[in-house]
Computed example of a mutant assay.
Amino acid sequence: MTSIGSGGGIEVTPDIFSYTNQIVNLILVGNSNEFVLIDTGMPKAAGEIKEMIAERMGENARPNAIVLTHGHFDHVGSLVELLEDWRVPVYAHELELPYLKGEKDYPPGDPEVDSGLVAKMSTMFPNHGINIGDQVKMLPKDGTMPFMPGWKWLHTPGHTPGHVSFFREQDRTLLAGDAFVTVKQESLYKVLTQTVEISGPPRYFTTDWEQAYESVRKLEALKPEIAVTGHGLPMSGKELSENLAFLAKNFTEVAKPKSSRYVN
């Protein structure tokens, strides 16, 4: 499964580059001298990711660190393979570590959350954890970001227990992960065409809807000027502020599924 945006990238700001691997975004933050990779895309994409980084940052470039929004298969799919060549630290929230150390698996996808084909296919998506051992470290408890001066991380659970988003006050840029997305991830047609539509976290893998709602409210309260999400195109300005405010105000009606094994 892939989208029309796969293999393409968008320079969101001079130091933020969003790259689409099939249906998911990974992000480079920084420049050729020092940069961080946020998330690692789908399985078997390590070669593609390395080629993208070489083209963007220079031959043999590698990140100072990898930072994870969360550990679902489409965000850590190529992590193990990348770490075979890159002995770089990996950072994630404390509550996400059991899924990255082989101690826990995520709950399976719920096909009943939406009539869209992606939702119906979700039981086939991998939900197992991975094991990268002591290469994964806990994000600093003071909210700072390793190798990302000026940024802070925010705990935005709901989609997963340890999901995090990243915010830079200087230009009000938000890297939201899957706390909310800008494509209706449950619909195969909208995923393939990358139809822009602000949406809550992907329904089929979201397990705590009260936390998911609070996370959207927390991010909307930041009044971001630019948002890059885990799925879909970047959004900015009035389009972002109006749509994110609408999502926060009407979360129960537009984001939360009417029925799901995880709603209650």
Rank of each mutant, 00 (worst) to 15 (best):
P111C: 08
Y106Q: 06
Y106V: 09
Y91A: 00
P126M: 03
W86N: 02
V164P: 00
V118M: 14
M145Y: 02
Y99I: 08
P111Y: 05
R87K: 15
T160A: 11
W86Q: 00
L83I: 11
L82A: 05
K104Y: 08
P107N: 04
P89G: 11
G102S: 09
E84K: 15
E112S: 15
Y91I: 05
G150W: 05
E96C: 05
L139K: 02
S122Q: 07
E84N: 14
P89R: 01
N131L: 12
F166I: 06
P146C: 04
M148S: 07
F147P: 02
V76L: 13
L117D: 09
W151T: 01
L100S: 03
L174C: 08
V118A: 09
T123G: 15
G109Y: 07
H128T: 12
H93R: 05
T123C: 13
P157C: 13
M138Q: 14
P146H: 01
H163D: 10
V164F: 04
V80D: 07
P111H: 00
E94N: 10
G77E: 00
K104C: 10
H163K: 01
P157L: 13
W151V: 02
W86F: 12
E169S: 13
Y106P: 04
W86H: 08
K152L: 10
F125M: 10
E169H: 11
H155S: 14
P108F: 01
P161G: 13
P107M: 06
H163E: 13
P108T: 08
F166T: 03
W86I: 03
L117S: 10
G129D: 06
E81A: 14
W153I: 00
G133D: 11
D114T: 05
A119D: 07
L174S: 09
T123H: 11
L95G: 00
F167L: 06
G150H: 07
L95F: 11
D114M: 00
L139N: 02
K152M: 15
N127R: 13
T160L: 08
Q170K: 15
F125L: 12
K137T: 10
P140M: 01
G150T: 07
N127H: 15
V164A: 06
G143F: 01
A92I: 06
D110N: 08
F125T: 04
P161Y: 09
D110Y: 09
V88H: 04
T156R: 00
D134N: 13
M124R: 13
H163N: 12
E96P: 01
L117Q: 13
Q170N: 15
G150L: 01
P126N: 02
L154A: 05
H159T: 13
L97F: 11
A119T: 11
G77H: 05
G102Y: 08
E94V: 11
G129C: 10
F167Y: 15
G143W: 01
S165F: 08
N127Y: 14
R168V: 10
D105N: 12
H155W: 15
G109T: 03
M124L: 15
K152R: 15
W153Y: 12
P89A: 11
V136Q: 07
I130S: 08
E84D: 10
I130H: 05
P146A: 02
Q170T: 15
H93S: 02
L139F: 07
W86M: 06
L95R: 14
G77W: 04
L154N: 03
L97I: 14
E112F: 14
K104S: 12
G133F: 10
L154C: 03
F167I: 07
R168K: 14
L97D: 04
F167H: 02
D171M: 07
K141L: 09
D114Y: 06
